[in-house]
Design a binder for these strands. Sequence first.
DNA 1: TTCCTATCTTGTAATGGTTACAAGATTGAA
DNA 2: TTCAATCTTGTAACCATTACAAGATAGGAA
Lengths: 141, 141
Amino acid sequence: MDRYVELLKKKGLKITPQRLEILRYLDENRIHPNIERIHSDLKKDNPSLSKTTVYNVIDDLTKADLLQILTINRFEILCDFKADPHHHFLCKECKKVYDLDEDFNCHLLEKIRSEGYQVDEVHGYFKGTCRSCLNKREGGK
Amino acid sequence: MDRYVELLKKKGLKITPQRLEILRYLDENRIHPNIERIHSDLKKDNPSLSKTTVYNVIDDLTKADLLQILTINRFEILCDFKADPHHHFLCKECKKVYDLDEDFNCHLLEKIRSEGYQVDEVHGYFKGTCRSCLNKREGGK
DNA sequence: TTCCTATCTTGTAATGGTTACAAGATTGAA
DNA sequence: TTCAATCTTGTAACCATTACAAGATAGGAA
């Protein structure tokens, strides 16, 4: 059975072409697209796709824990396929968001758990300048 | 000289009563208030304070690095006086945002620096349920 | 102190991303 | 195959944030 059909079934969501397309798109394109980008990219193959549907599907899939919405900046909704735990780096020059595949295994997390907080999610957002933009600066000298 | 006057001067910003009030309010009330809350609280002593001014001042002070805007959720602008590096815990039940005063000193940060990223900001957002809400659940049994 | 310009504050109006809603289409269980 | 629940779509409404212009203020210069 299709991987995405299976994911939706496991969560008790109805299988619709729109949900499958969006899920597949986000799995295959780990570029943290915003709503506009998802809509315009998928409209190419499905011209009747409505932006409201993109909002609805993103909402459903996020509630089902198949996606997460990044809040690394406050200007747009960035969508991220929910794979293994990972963190993010935002380059303030090119605005690209990079995945940091390694988890951080830090003392602070243990500490707050030991203090009695129940921690369900950990989001690490690192911001600065990426290698590619730093190189361009060097080159531009 | 007043501590807040000094902070503004150091950043080359003009000293205005509105800026001083907002800065003082955020320093003395580390509750991560949103714009509405700041406006309504400060309006009590200064009824002519405009919401536009709150937006403008928050913007100026953030650019001057005296404040930071939290992006722990995407529903509102939460303002935070910029003190020592610290991270945040959002309780998904009571919606309160707690400061985690300890910094995390993690391997991942060293790793991405060693890979050539220039890291200027590190934001750790932990989400779950706080002790107080967990206690209420127990009590409610 | 006084003057003057740059900047700040304020209220109103415009913007635009997101959500609400209703009608028609689709899904999937019976 | 049927049918109710639910999903998709387009339009309209919403409302937080931003743009703008007029009047007020801050603070350096004379």
